[in-house]
Simulated assay, not measured.
Amino acid sequence: MKTIQTLIRASLCAAASLTLAGCLTSTPHWDETFGSSVSQLKEMQTLNPNAGMNTDPVAGVDGSTAHAIQKNYAKSFTTPPPPINVFAVGLPVSN
């Protein structure tokens, strides 16, 4: 008889705990800081935040050279260089 009363009390306590746990909320704190870590990391990785305001053109590479560089860069993905035999690196080449 005593065991049944103990089980009933334990189940009532468990039910009351689960009911009260449903009323507890911590999302307002989470919602107000949502996305702040991403914004902070983005700001930390930005070298010059006002770079978009600079209207001075970049000097140093003319158009035809830049076009050839970009073409070679794109071509490097379509036809990758042949693999290097790593076992032969550093060994003298015999003809």
Score class of each variant (00 low, 15 high):
His29Ile: 10
Leu41Phe: 04
Ala74Phe: 10
Met44Glu: 13
Glu32Ala: 13
Gln5Tyr: 10
Ile69Ala: 04
Ser64Cys: 01
Asp56Glu: 15
Thr65Glu: 12
Gly90Gln: 02
Arg9Tyr: 10
Cys13Ala: 15
Thr27Gln: 12
Thr46Val: 03
Ala14Phe: 13
Leu18Ser: 05
Arg9Gln: 10
Thr33Lys: 13
Ala59Val: 09
Thr3Glu: 11
Asp56Trp: 11
Asp31Pro: 01
Leu47Lys: 06
Leu47Ile: 15
Pro81Met: 04
Ala10Val: 01
Thr55Gly: 07
Gly22Arg: 06
Ser26Gly: 15
Lys75His: 09
Ala74Val: 06
Ala59Gln: 12
His29Leu: 14
Cys23Ala: 14
Lys71Ile: 05
Pro57Arg: 02
Asn50Glu: 08
Glu43Tyr: 01
Ala88Glu: 09
Ala59Glu: 13
Gln5Arg: 08
Thr65Gly: 04
Leu41His: 07
Gln70Ser: 08
Tyr73Asp: 03
Ile84Leu: 06
Met1Phe: 09
Pro83Cys: 03
Thr78Asp: 08
Met44Gly: 08
Leu24Asn: 07
Phe77Glu: 01
Trp30Asp: 12
Pro28Cys: 00
Leu12Tyr: 03
Leu7Lys: 03
Asn54Gln: 05
His29Trp: 15
Met44Trp: 09
Thr19Met: 13
Asn72Gln: 07
Thr6Arg: 12
Ser64Phe: 04
Val89Cys: 01
Leu7Pro: 00
Ala14Glu: 04
